[in-house]
Simulated scan of single mutants.
Amino acid sequence: MRKILSTSIVALVLAAGAGVYIHAAAHRNDAGAAATAAVDIGPGHHRILVRSTAPGSMGHLAVVAGAARTTSSVTCNRVYAAAGTAICLRPDGPLATYQIAVLDEHLAERDTYPMVGVPNRARVSADGRLVTWTAFVTGDSYNGGQFSTRVGVLDTRTGDLVADTLESYALTRDGHPYQAADVNYWGVTFAADDTTFYATMASAGHRYLVRGDLTARTVTTVAEHVECPSLSPDGTRIAFKQAVGGDPVNGWRPAVMDLATAAVTTLPETRSVDDQIAWLDDRTVLYAIHRDQDHADVWSAPADGTGPPALLIPDAESPAPIP
């Protein structure tokens, strides 16, 4: 397992330069971190797990319930959780290398695996069985188009790597088999069956929403101009970030697509949302807005576009609702 996840030493070297800043940002406030406490992300608590961007607790995981906020001693660059399982993408030593940590409902470490590239996206299936991550292997931004990503999917019950690279899956684009050297995937989200997933696929300057099958090892395009999808709890809609004017250089706006009709609702957000949107419930989405390089806040918005965004959790990012 660990051998599969660490196959490309060259890729780690390429990612090192981009990772130095991230490593420093995650740890520079550890010495002065606020007092920490035990947390519980088990189901039934109606909390939101976040990565803190507050002074004194930068990078620490925290759980928020209403006005109450409990900060843990665990630090991550990116986190997500469901059904008592969390995935934490974090630095692994001083050389700008990274690891995937699988955590339990108390954020205690269950297992760790070496990671190729710089952490970017993370998700957990609704039942906590599958975890997935996206990393930049070359480049550190989606904006310029010159980047390469790696996506992995791990079965936490068996420890098996279900997918170490989606590029090996059979891809159908617009109804026809498709192969290209520049195919990249990122931003996986799982359906309830733990077999179906959605993700972004990019090739030849186009970005697509794709639907995949982990058992059949197939991927099929669904729509264009969809990035970092997030499947609603009821499985009927995809929340995503949509490039302004079709060009990521202009930033992104949050939007929601109805999978049955392909109708897209752009939410009334005027700021750029470079995030994999989360669903608080079937009516409300969550996303982070960065105030600067380090600091962000979590905002909520009605998924049907009928209301403006509202500040939900200050000094936080990477929200993961815990029903």
Score class of each variant (00 low, 15 high):
Leu95Arg: 10
Asn184Val: 11
Ser57Met: 11
Pro94Thr: 09
Leu161Cys: 02
Thr220Ala: 11
Tyr21Val: 08
Arg291Tyr: 05
Ala202Ile: 08
Phe136His: 06
Leu107Asp: 06
His27Phe: 04
Ser57Cys: 13
His295Asn: 13
Ile322Gly: 00
Ser318Gly: 15
Phe190Ile: 08
Ser168Arg: 12
Pro94Trp: 10
Ala86Gln: 02
Val20Gly: 00
Gly66Lys: 07
Ala202Cys: 15
Asp213Gln: 02
Arg271Lys: 12
Glu227Met: 11
Pro321Arg: 00
Ala24Thr: 10
Ile48Pro: 00
Thr149Asn: 13
Pro254Leu: 11
Lys3Phe: 06
Arg211Val: 11
Gln276Trp: 07
Gly42Tyr: 02
Gly175Cys: 10
Pro309Ser: 03
Arg217Thr: 11
Ala199Arg: 00
Val222Tyr: 08
Trp279Gly: 02
Thr220Val: 14
Pro319Glu: 04
Gly152Cys: 08
Gly32His: 13
Ala37Arg: 10
Ser72Trp: 08
Pro321Asn: 00
Thr85Lys: 00
Ser300Phe: 00
Ala239Lys: 01
Val188His: 03
Thr200Leu: 03
His46Pro: 07
Gly245Lys: 07
Leu154His: 02
Cys228Met: 14
Thr36Lys: 10
Asp275Thr: 15
Leu89Pro: 10
Ala181Trp: 15
Ala223Met: 14
Tyr80Ala: 15
Gly187Pro: 02
Thr284Cys: 03
Tyr21Phe: 04
Gly251Tyr: 14
Thr196Lys: 08
Ser52His: 06
Tyr208Asp: 09
Pro248Gly: 14
Leu214Thr: 05
Arg121Val: 12
Val219Asn: 01
Leu214Asp: 01
Thr138Asp: 09
Arg157Thr: 05
Ser141Ala: 14
Ala288Met: 12
Arg271Val: 11
Glu269Ser: 03
Ser168Pro: 00
Ala83Ile: 03
Ala122Tyr: 03
Gly205Met: 12
Thr266Trp: 00
Ala303Asp: 05
Leu5Trp: 07
Val137Leu: 12
